[in-house]
């Protein structure tokens, strides 16, 4: 399967402060009633963006100047809770292409990577600095350099965390491993053959 090589993501940012943001908040369960992921973008953070009558509440994602943002800035343990891939899917469909945070929940991290939406870790101070820059000017460009594991904003370079394996799979266009998983049929047969409960 030929996948795009993701080496760099550049765009405007959007900052959602707070730690331990769970996937129920990213996409409330009632919007999981669907059989495709299409259209989930509108429901990202729905209950934080809209009131009971569907009226907009003050929220960065409702602000015109952030609507074309492609880089999301978050706190620690982002994406904890449910394994619902609907969460990263809704952010991706909102237009997000990379997430920068202090730390991420594991399942969310893996789901996002497999979608081609990398999550990189950044020091808290770096996130705050970039967030301040964006507040002053929403058009501020953020450059996420996957190959160099660095984020650049207003000329300042911040080192970013990304596990080696994730990095290589992004830059080499292997972030969805299905091709490789299918290729190793023989290896899989051998393991299955050795496990009595699978035969």
């Amino acid at each position: 399967m030929a996948l795009a090589k993701i080496t760099e993501i550049t765009g405007c940012g959007i900052h959602l402060p707070g730690d331990d943001v769970d996937t129920d908040r990213i996409i409330p369960a009632r919007y999981l009633k669907c059989v495709t992921f299409d259209g989930l973008g509108e429901f990202a953070f729905y209950d934080e963006r809209f009131d009971g009558e569907g009226r907009e509440k003050p929220h960065p994602m409702n602000e015109e100047q952030f609507k074309h943002a492609s880089i999301l800035l978050v706190g620690s343990n982002f994406g904890c809770g449910s394994s619902r891939e609907h969460a990263p899917q809704s952010l991706y469909r909102f237009g997000i292409r990379a997430v920068l945070g202090v730390s991420f929940a594991e399942i969310f991290y893996g789901n996002s990577l497999q979608l081609g939406m990398p999550c990189l870790t950044l020091a808290k101070e770096a996130i705050e600095k970039i967030a301040t820059a964006m507040k002053q000017n929403p058009e501020t460009q953020i450059r996420v350099d996957i190959a160099a594991k660095a984020v650049t904003c207003q000329g300042e370079v911040f080192p970013a965390g990304l596990p080696e394996g994730s990095q290589s799979s992004l830059v080499e266009g292997r972030w969805d491993p299905i091709g490789e998983l299918l290729d190793n049929g023989g290896g899989v047969d051998r393991v299955i053959g050795s496990l009595p409960y699978m035969n």
Partner: peptide, 29 residues
């Protein structure tokens, strides 16, 4: 170890899943 089928180029393990359970919410897609 008993379920490892190999190493992928990303460095991750290809792990055999012996039992797969599915439900209506996360499987249709």
């Amino acid at each position: 170890e008993a379920h490892s089928a190999g190493r992928l180029s990303s460095g991750s393990t290809q792990l055999v899943v012996g039992t797969h359970l599915i439900h209506e919410v996360t499987s249709p897609q």
